[in-house]
């Protein structure tokens, strides 16, 4: 049985809530509450830092109190001054509409994106949203206003899955449109050619963006836990079908999937892209912690 804390982040519980804003807030507040209880995790959005004065710094930013204490000039820096622009890229292709349990990858991803947006805006960073399938379906530019959250959530709530997956091509397309460096968060099942996906991600890196990838998978996609002769029909392309005995191919299937994941993980690692494999059964706080770890 889930503990009260765990139930905050249980995707199945969250999925039953109708209000996405509530879901996002629930997750984020829960995460933050947990972090406050455990400082050891060592992060606070209100943290400010000092650095020694360097020629060219504005005089008004000198911390005079610190001068009094340490007899040295320190410049005071605030979070909101980082002016981080975050592009949340959400995959809404047909393959996301799959669930072996109660929560589809799409539902899970929406809550995750909403939570991230809530968190980003709460830290007074700018958050934008791009949804895509085999094309860019919608695009909200990054903004840092708190009221923007409503707009983002409305966009998310209006989304449905459609079309086929073309992550690699879309990433390249999106990368071409981003002018300013920032954070790119990709939430997708990445059911595309791994090399093509990595190629797109690299483009963001070339432009100086930080990239955070949430690879969302259903547990059944990883393990193929079925039995008996099964006619598999692709969700996106009905022409793609195959009859197989899952038990007979299970071991090989797992090898193929793990190989795909490994390719993505190592490719991301090579270009300092933060790669997170999350299952739709994974509590959402763990996903958010990944983000916060990066933000730290």
């Amino acid at each position: 049985m889930a503990t009260p804390e765990q139930s905050y982040f249980d995707p199945a519980v969250l999925a039953r809530l109708s209000n996405l804003h509530l879901k996002a807030r629930w997750v984020v507040e829960g995460v933050m509450a947990g972090l406050h209880r455990s400082r050891a995790k060592g992060f606070s959005v209100e943290f400010e830092q000092h650095r020694e004065y360097a020629p060219g710094d504005e005089i008004r930013r000198i911390d005079w109190k610190a001068l009094g204490k340490f007899d040295r000039y320190f410049i005071k820096e605030f979070e909101d001054e980082s002016n981080l622009k975050t592009h949340l890229l959400l995959d809404v292709s047909g393959s996301m509409d799959y669930a072996s349990g109660e929560v589809t990858k799409f539902q899970y991803s929406c809550i995750l994106v909403a939570s991230l947006a809530y968190l980003i805006l709460r830290q007074q960073d700018a958050a934008g949203l791009i949804t895509f399938s085999d094309r860019i379906d919608s695009q909200l530019p990054p903004k840092a206003t708190r009221g923007y959250m409503v707009e983002l959530l409305q966009q998310l709530e209006g989304e449905t899955t459609r079309g086929e997956t073309a992550v690699g091509r879309i990433l390249r397309e999106v990368a071409g449109g981003i002018r300013r460096r920032g954070l790119v968060v990709l939430v997708s099942d990445l059911l595309d050619d791994a090399e093509s996906v990595l190629q797109g991600l690299r483009l963001f890196r070339y432009k100086g963006n930080d990239v955070l990838v949430f690879h969302v998978m259903d547990e059944a996609e990883r393990t193929l836990p079925f039995s008996g002769n099964t006619r598999f029909e692709d969700i996106e392309d009905s022409r793609l079908r195959v009859t197989a005995d899952p038990k007979a191919i299970q071991a090989e299937y797992r090898r193929v999937v793990e190989n795909h994941i490994d390719t993505l993980r190592s490719g991301c690692h090579e270009y300092a892209i933060d790669y997170q494999l999350v299952s739709t059964a994974t509590p959402l706080d763990q996903a958010l912690v990944s983000y916060l770890s990066w933000r730290k």
Binding site: L191, V242, A244
Partner: peptide
């Protein structure tokens, strides 16, 4: 008959099933 008794399943990762099927086909 045993082979004919199959169920249908809409699945996102059919491409992986296909690859696996091809690889194990000979042995299977």
């Amino acid at each position: 008959l045993n082979r004919r008794q199959q169920r249908r399943l809409r699945f996102p990762a059919v491409r992986f099933v296909l690859i696996s099927q091809r690889r194990v086909a000979r042995t299977y």
